[in-house]
Design a protein around this nucleic acid. Structure first.
Lengths: 362, 362
DNA sequence: GATGGTTGTGTTAGCGCTATCATAACGGAA
DNA sequence: TTCCGTTATGATAGCGCTAACACAACCATC
């Protein structure tokens, strides 16, 4: 039987200890308590100790709502990601919290479900909280998002893509070049009819760029080009398996597929196992993201490694710098990518004459 | 060259449009604008329209910081999870946002890294923001966490476990019974020497309960009991593979392992594939959580399905109910679990005499 | 035509903090 | 001595909004 449950009920927030009470107990004024907390070096040591004691005794927890309103600094950063479920974005969020938390900033998180309209609503809801900064995913946004952020005067970082004209700041990599590099890599390994399974492209500039990169590489390499070699599939193992089935049935001579993310690719890899398709000799499979699983599948998954954690950490740092007035001169940070070749594609590049085009270094 | 970049720089938040300005433009008082936004049905339709027009014209975005301070309602819910990386908790967060967002509430997210001390710091940082509610993971907390929340008067929901004496409210399931049921399930399928790979137990009541459930079942079933049959492994595919290797080398006669989460189990399953261990005949593997991957591995992974999304959704609902004054009489909600048997364990239960004990229904 | 309820709007007074300026105390330089 | 700079603290006035009450206008009732 919970014995204290009677006193546990919420009493409303108004009953909390106020700064005035602490001040009285410490024999100082409210502003001195405020200073002891926010700028301790501007308070005499003896006073500081008295204040600390009073704080401990009363269990005072400053009301940051009031503090933020008065000081016009909220110590809050808003983050909007397309989906929480994809652990890809979790790494970014982790990168942000690691940087922000120790500076006393907090994260407001929301997911847009890949909808620009929802994103716009979230942005205005976040702006209402007067955050110190806002981190968005991608570079395509609803018009009202841009209008709003243009005049809100909040530090904004877009992520996960590149753009010539970010709203404010940007940390990302080139999805187009990454996809392009992977397809050229596959071509270099001797694959000659390469399919594509993309994430749904609508409202998703990252997915669209990867499709563009694939198409450019296919064209440059003189590989078969056709819309029938491409599929769209929403993020799941199952959909990867289904897309693989659909493609190999439509194109029995296809010898490789580039998947726009590792989850689709891993689903396909497992489907190959069920169907007895020999990976990598008979069929090559490549993914994107280099999630943990990619290193563990049998065979391992060839993929594109992207700096997920780093994107979050750098985005957070950019915001902190802006707040501190340390205006960095690079508002656009390209963190690049890396091709990781594993067992799901052939090991040895096939030596052969190559068209006279720049080759993609991995 | 970004042409508007000169005007994009932050101007500080204070330059935003204030409610007074909207009121003047609409020819009403500030409070009427406030009402038009918060309780539109208490404002005459004509006035409401005038206010809306003024809002549109000025691009007014209410300052929720000020609103929360004045009204003593912050419309913010704090969530503390052990780690963002594990998509298990992502489902919970998704459940919460789905319920909260449409009520106009927002999520502040932080991760404790499985440390009760970090959790306590986060709790007091969150309390400083005067959230409407707080959702914690697990039921073991630092003393100061309990003290603080006891007097803070904030709606608190603990999740993912059961407890007789929650701080306030609770939504979870019995980790002990779930682990127990799984081990009995394995025993029922004819496995006779069952190992355990647990998550690190320190500061993690969920992991500790699962170990307890395993031990109870092993004892009840008369299976071999020994600390050497148990391992601890941090959440990763790799660690699952390593733990499997360690256990089968130490105990060549072991015929099944219960892993405390699917990622460890999947890592082990892949390791079996690499080692040529025949699953499920030679060796049974069971996991916990029923993540998407569990249905897709070859063979599929036997596991415990837990209501991850539902936990978040119900926790959010409890907080909303509390705020609305709808005090529900069940402050403790047990959402249960479900054994999902797939190909990583034998299909047909071995018929045999069973000790005269209650059997766990799955 | 006085009473009472309802509806719509305004006035006032904060919410709990911090920015800003003022002030006091002190030590050293001219 | 007077003056100035430095350091420590306080008094005052908001930050931008909403709670609480006041009040006016209107309709219905008896």
């Amino acid at each position: 039987m919970p014995k204290e449950s009677a006193t546990r009920r919420p009493r409303g927030l108004g009953t909390a200890v106020r700064i005035e009470e602490v001040a009285r107990l410490a024999g100082v004024s409210a502003i001195t308590v405020s200073r002891a907390l926010n700028t301790p070096d501007k308070v005499a040591e003896k006073t500081r100790e008295a204040v600390w004691e009073a704080i401990e005794k009363t269990g005072y927890i400053p009301n940051r709502l009031a503090g933020s309103l008065a000081s016009n600094r909220s110590h809050t950063i808003g983050v909007i990601i397309p989906t929480i479920i994809n652990s890809i974005f979790a790494d970014k969020v982790q990168g942000m919290t690691d940087v922000l938390l120790k500076e006393g900033y907090h994260l407001m998180l929301a997911n847009s479900g890949y909808s620009l309209e929802v994103e716009a609503d979230l942005v205005s809801a976040f702006v209402a909280q007067r955050p110190s900064g806002l981190v968005l995913t991608g570079v395509s946004h609803a018009d009202r998002t841009r209008t709003l952020l243009g005049r809100a005067g909040i530090a904004v970082v877009e992520t996960w893509s590149l753009s010539e004209e970010p709203i404010d700041m940007l940390v990302g990599f080139s999805n187009e070049k990454a996809a392009h590099a992977m397809v050229r890599h596959l071509h270099g390994l001797g694959y000659r009819k390469i399919g594509l399974v993309s994430a749904p492209v609508e409202h998703n500039d990252r997915a669209a760029s990867r499709v563009a990169g694939y198409r450019r590489a296919v064209r440059e390499c003189g590989l078969p080009e056709a819309r029938s070699l491409e599929r769209e599939a929403a993020f799941s193992f199952r959909n990867g398996a289904l897309a693989l089935a659909s493609l190999v049935e439509a194109h029995p001579d296809m010898d490789a597929i580039f998947f726009a993310n590792d989850i689709l690719a891993a689903g396909a890899l497992l489907e190959c196992q069920r169907r007895g398709i020999a990976v990598p000799d008979e069929f090559g499979i490549a993914g994107f993201d280099d999630v943990d699983l990619a290193a563990e599948t049998v065979p391992g998954l060839t993929t594109v490694r992207i700096p997920r954690y780093e994107i979050g950490a750098r985005a957070a740092q950019l915001i902190l710098d802006r707040i501190a007035g340390r205006e960095s001169n690079d508002r656009i940070i390209d963190l690049g990518f890396e091709i990781v070749s594993r067992g799901s594609t052939r090991a040895a590049p096939v030596v052969q004459p190559r068209p006279a085009l720049r080759r993609a270094d991995a």
